[in-house]
Write a protein that binds this DNA or RNA. Structure first.
Lengths: 214, 214
DNA sequence: AATCCAGTATGCAGTGACTGCAGTTTGGCT
DNA sequence: AGCCAAACTGCAGTCACTGCATACTGGATT
């Protein structure tokens, strides 16, 4: 019934990452969306362009938008997580922002398709929305990691439950930062991901003291 | 084509707020979702329960989820906006969080339906998501208001453009706070809206110094 | 009282995303 | 050659949603 949370596919639950067919579908989808816009691009059009049947399309991608934005989910970079927990720099938020390993940055994907995909996503408010929703998927995990750092900063009068809530709140703040970065990345003309991340970090460092009062 | 951004309806663009039919549809929708879950509740079921045709349903609500979560959008409370701009308290974020006038709190709605609606929304991840998306609709407005306050706190080396970007970043942070509050409100068993807002404010006040370092 | 009109409700046919099922092709392996 | 699992396909069906053309309603106008 729901269109967005459909189960993967049926039997093999193909990861889509890697199979030639999935790649063809993805590049057709991105190209057509860039050409006609997301709403005007039907699944049938993508199938025709990729030379496959509609059923095959849905064997690879659970939804139409998955074919455009990709199936990889942002993850926490384990090695960085350990470093983050051990560290104790003053700027927890900025540190945490670097925990997230954006998919597609690990070089496993064609950078050309990557660039087109980003343009396609930013051309549609709906796709952008879906893209941002993905950040929410790691928020719980993020809150847990943050809790380790935050526990060391807690005052004696704060219960463990309170620290946990503060961690969850921090994770939500972080999601806001990520949304801001994604926004800047997509709407800005050029600018690489590392550049945007660094810029946001600086901006945040300047901003936080103003928000926290003195 | 898109399911989520459909234009209101055709001629009169009914506000849905107030008409008896719209109210019947809303309460049928909420009741059925509570009973069967969102995905298992079809538009036809709601129509049958409310005693209207499907076409009439879509004359009142642009989408199925609109009938459950309501059509009112959060707005900035104008009188509070003026107070916010004039004030200069140390806790800008917490101040800003009170700018938002949540719909349904102005007493114009049946509190009983309000409570059922909240339970219905929190019973489905998809609905919750849609609900949270609405906060994004006022982010631009919010950033503009924040800019007034932030401009007074800027250092000489910061350009107007930089202040604007910091304001946008702040608006995104605020959206995170709102999401956290909404989450707490929905998942918590009881707790009134003002109580949650106050609690979040306190929590934020305790948290911010930790995040900004000293 | 007859007329008119705007607002609202409806039936119907169509589009587009998505699913389940049942059957076929394909390529590697024995 | 024969076999098997993975991948592909057609098809029929469900559900959200739209456009259009057509009623029904109650009150304001003449």
């Amino acid at each position: 019934m729901s269109r967005t949370d459909a189960p993967r596919a049926r039997s093999g639950a193909p990861t889509s990452r890697g199979t030639a067919t999935a790649r063809r579908i993805e590049s057709s989808a991105v190209a057509l969306v860039l050409q006609h816009g997301y709403d005007a691009t039907t699944v049938d059009m993508i199938c025709a362009d990729a030379g496959i049947s509609q059923r095959t399309f849905f064997n690879h991608f659970a939804t139409k938008d998955a074919a455009v934005i990709g199936t990889d989910v942002p993850r926490l970079d384990e090695s960085r997580v350990r470093a983050f927990i051990a560290a104790s720099g003053p700027n927890l938020l900025a540190d945490a922002a670097e925990l997230i390993a954006l998919p597609g940055l690990d070089g496993a994907m064609d950078p050309q398709l990557m660039r087109l995909r980003m343009r396609a996503i930013s051309s549609s408010a709906e796709l952008m929305q879906r893209q941002l929703e993905r950040f929410a998927s790691i928020e719980a995990e993020l809150a847990e990691v943050i809790e380790y750092r935050l526990a060391r900063l807690s005052t004696p009068d704060e219960s463990a439950a309170e620290v946990r809530e503060q961690s969850r709140l921090t994770a939500h703040l972080l999601a806001g930062i990520l949304r801001y970065s994604a926004d800047a990345l997509m709407s800005g003309d050029s600018a690489s991901v590392p550049a945007i991340v660094a810029q946001t970090r600086d901006r945040l460092t300047a901003l936080l003291p103003k928000l926290a009062g003195r």
